[in-house]
């Protein structure tokens, strides 16, 4: 059972990848199949059920792309 959930405001992501380096369960990756409004591959999560809601990703995001919820 997932402990948390993250939401990416994809269109303001600058594709810097910092969030992908701090996720303890390693579920964040850059979506190479899409480009956002700014022309970057946005960060995203697919295996949301593994999220523990630690907010590390949101902590290091310079552009406040990520909102974190915890159950």
């Amino acid at each position: 059972m997932a402990k948390g959930r993250v939401e990416f405001k994809e269109d303001i992501c600058k594709g810097c990848e910092l969030c992908t380096t701090v996720c303890p369960v390693d579920i964040i990756f850059m979506d190479k199949t899409r480009i956002n409004k700014k022309g970057y591959h946005p960060a995203t999560v697919v295996e949301m059920d593994k999220c523990i809601g630690c907010a590390n990703c949101a902590m290091v995001c310079p552009d406040l792309v990520i909102t974190v919820e915890r159950f």
């Binding site: 948390g4 959930r5 907010a55 902590m59 406040l64 909102t67 974190v68 919820e69 915890r70 159950f71």
Partner: peptide
């Protein structure tokens, strides 16, 4: 379910 991290009002 609680939001524990969101965009701060301190920034525009």
């Amino acid at each position: 379910m609680a939001v524990i991290f969101e965009r701060t009002k301190g920034l525009t």
